[in-house]
Design a binder for these strands. Sequence first.
DNA 1: GTTATGGTAGACAACTTTGTATACTTACGC
DNA 2: GCGTAAGTATACAAAGTTGTCTACCATAAC
Lengths: 194, 194
Amino acid sequence: MSVAKANDKRVQLVNTALQLFYQQGIHAIGINEILAKSGIAKKTLYNHFASKEALIQACVIERDKRFMQWFKARCSNTSSTAEFVEHLFNALHDWINNRETILEKFDGCFFVNTAAEYGDTGSEIYQLCLQHKLNIKQFFQQQLAINISDTKQVNSLTDLLVQLKEGVINCAYVMDDKEAALKAKQLALTFLKH
Amino acid sequence: MSVAKANDKRVQLVNTALQLFYQQGIHAIGINEILAKSGIAKKTLYNHFASKEALIQACVIERDKRFMQWFKARCSNTSSTAEFVEHLFNALHDWINNRETILEKFDGCFFVNTAAEYGDTGSEIYQLCLQHKLNIKQFFQQQLAINISDTKQVNSLTDLLVQLKEGVINCAYVMDDKEAALKAKQLALTFLKH
DNA sequence: GTTATGGTAGACAACTTTGTATACTTACGC
DNA sequence: GCGTAAGTATACAAAGTTGTCTACCATAAC
């Protein structure tokens, strides 16, 4: 069997699990539901993953990969800080309003949701969630540093944007404010002018 | 048996459940763990609550009550917008750094965490989580309206503070940034000056 | 063609979950 | 003092959980 086909089932499992975990929560979804939906046999799952925990880890890693890829595609190659801010919040707005199928139907931040269920900061799963947030922050810093030379200014602007981004996601999710990203964009742009 | 004592066990159950649910997640905690920790018999629990679901609802309501009470105590009676902003983020900072025992050891926003596990927007539990966020927002608006007459300005400042507050909680929780509240305070104060 | 690999199907073990039922105990109000 | 109401302790039912095991099938490599 070719390598591509050998990984076929693994990819299908992660896809299905990610979707179900994100939409309903990890503890709420049993292995059997994932198997039923994907049409894959239980033994195949345990052939690819040592445990449910290992599958969850693979899902978190995959979500980080997809999110970063999408995010970088939407927010790279901007020629000014204002343009970066525009792209950033426009991207969030599209995600929140379900115009980005690659990210699944918007259900808040998968990493926050997952950390809430596997909150022990020592766990591997929490560490992966933390790593994603650090990846996002690092990307912000890199992009801002292109058009701003003062490191201190880059860092404080990064903090602002990170906090607004997190706030937008929470507001859109629990408060059901689907315009949150546009409000944050205006605020950030106003801030930039001063 | 007196009314006070009749409610005694109910209060104990909610206290214990709230603590465990908040720290470890709702699905992760079974009824039996709550009973063991509180030292209360199973029949007593089902005497006070129709189901685990009913107990969860009582916990969300109780958390909202406590949080609003604490929040109002910390952020009321301010004589300027800047003072309100100071009090707001100082309060968050104390919570995040575990100086507010009434709120339990900081583990993010209980309502966001709970919504992540009971994400169906039609569920009673989600509605209670949403209601809490609306209560917070309404309180912000009321406080800001004391010192600002322009309604539009009140609303846009409310949006800013709500988003920053949510962002601070997320950053402090998953990103483990315990200084997030102080950063947000500086940003909000800078914003006010312009 | 044979063999090794990976997949399917599904029974099953061991455990955990919520919720009910039974029998006994405590304590307050009248 | 007695009866009612509430609590304790614990067994148990019913369902669901993860993970293992056996038996069989398909296919690609040699």
